[in-house]
Design a protein around this nucleic acid. Structure first.
Length: 359
DNA sequence: GATTCGTGGAC
DNA sequence: TGTCCAAGAAT
């Protein structure tokens, strides 16, 4: 089976291509395990160009792992705000705490120790340890799975085929730097061997790739069909008490955990917007409110559902009585910039700004 | 093993 | 406008 590939020659082509064409990325300027780790966490399901400004901002404020361990989670989330998948940030914070307390601040170099860290799976453990220490672990991300499924002409990415692909990359790693091989394959995947466009003429693997000979390399692997996502109609209220309004912090365990929001929730069948809003606010924080003017309406798409959120100004009849299961704060509009809010709220803030609220 | 996690780019 | 999907992990 493996004799059909000239492993040594292919590895040489791969490394040569990488030395000439590798992307100049901020996290490739250093082999600090903390920085490589951070980059891999941020890059999870997130494109390079999106990550770069967040990566720089983060390192500017938190240059070392110890700085993260000593930071407050809310301040870290503020840096992360807008990047999505907020558990990545909170897990990374937890992991840095563990490294400081249990490993004297040194990131584990052992695969099985490292993968125990919160937010570290097989991919990130392999990527960090191969890049930092040149350990021979294939980092099977979406790019590499696609490149290899085409190279080996595998229609499906079954567990068996993933193992075959893993073992094949291990053979390459006997002839070249594992870190460079992983990163070379990632660059090929993101720049050349794209999901819907395989530019095979640019690819250092072209001579040996089995999918390019089919004239339809893009049909590997077979794309999966996505389920349609539901939409929810949501109402929220800005409850004013003179120059301040109420915000709630979302529960750790829930969607968007740790971020702040306005009180409100999903509308029920047959309910008017103000009825739903009055009911939700009463349930969430025990306040009885009068619903005043409509501020605006935004749409936002999450991974597995979308919302149509309408927001109203509200006035409480009993501001001093608060019983919430969540942390809450009364803040002035200017303080919004100090706290992390989800993207949907920022769409609302831009409406408020147009109305002269200076948030 | 299938779902649940955000957001924005590309087309 | 809609659709896919990106340097995946946790449950």
């Amino acid at each position: 089976m493996n004799n059909m590939y000239n492993t040594n020659k292919i590895t040489e082509q791969l490394i040569t291509w990488y030395s000439k064409h590798k992307r100049d990325l901020p996290w490739r300027h250093s082999k600090d395990p903390y920085k490589i780790w951070l980059s891999e966490i941020m890059l999870q399901q997130t494109q390079v160009d999106t990550v770069i400004p967040y990566y720089k901002k983060w390192l500017n404020k938190y240059p070392t792992l110890k700085d993260v361990a000593h930071a407050a989670e809310g301040d870290l989330l503020k840096i992360w705000e807008g990047l999505g998948y907020y558990n990545r940030c909170r897990n990374f914070k937890k992991a840095c705490d563990i490294v400081l307390s249990d490993y004297k601040g040194k990131v584990p170099t052992d695969f099985h120790a490292f993968i125990k860290m919160p937010g570290v799976g097989e991919y990130i453990a392999a990527a960090v340890l191969s890049i930092v220490h040149d350990k021979s672990y294939p980092a099977l991300d979406g790019n590499i799975m696609r490149v290899l499924s085409r190279f080996m002409k595998k229609k499906t990415l079954s567990r068996y085929n993933k193992k075959v692909i893993y073992n094949h990359i291990c053979k390459w790693m006997k002839f070249g730097s594992p870190g460079d091989i992983n990163q070379a394959l990632m660059d090929i995947g993101s720049q050349i061997c794209k999901p819907n466009q395989a530019h095979c003429y640019k690819c250092p693997l072209e001579n040996s790739c089995r999918a390019t000979k089919t004239n339809l390399p893009e049909s590997y692997p077979t794309p999966k069909q996505n389920k349609p996502i539901p939409n929810y109609d949501v109402v929220t209220g800005i409850i004013w008490d003179h120059d301040q309004f109420l915000i709630l912090q979302r529960n750790e365990m829930n969607h968007l955990g740790g971020l702040w929001e306005f009180p409100g929730g999903k509308m029920k069948n047959g309910e008017s917007q103000s009825e739903a809003l009055i009911r939700e606010i009463k349930e969430e924080c025990g306040l009885e409110v009068n619903v005043k003017s409509k501020i605006g309406s935004i749409k936002h798409v999450y991974s597995h559902f979308s919302i149509h959120m309408t927001t109203f100004h509200c006035v409480s009849k009993n501001n001093t009585i608060i019983k919430t299961t969540q942390p809450y704060r009364w803040i002035k509009p200017v303080q919004i910039k100090d706290l992390p809010f989800p993207k949907a709220n920022h769409k609302l803030f831009s409406i408020l700004n147009k109305q002269g609220w200076h948030v």
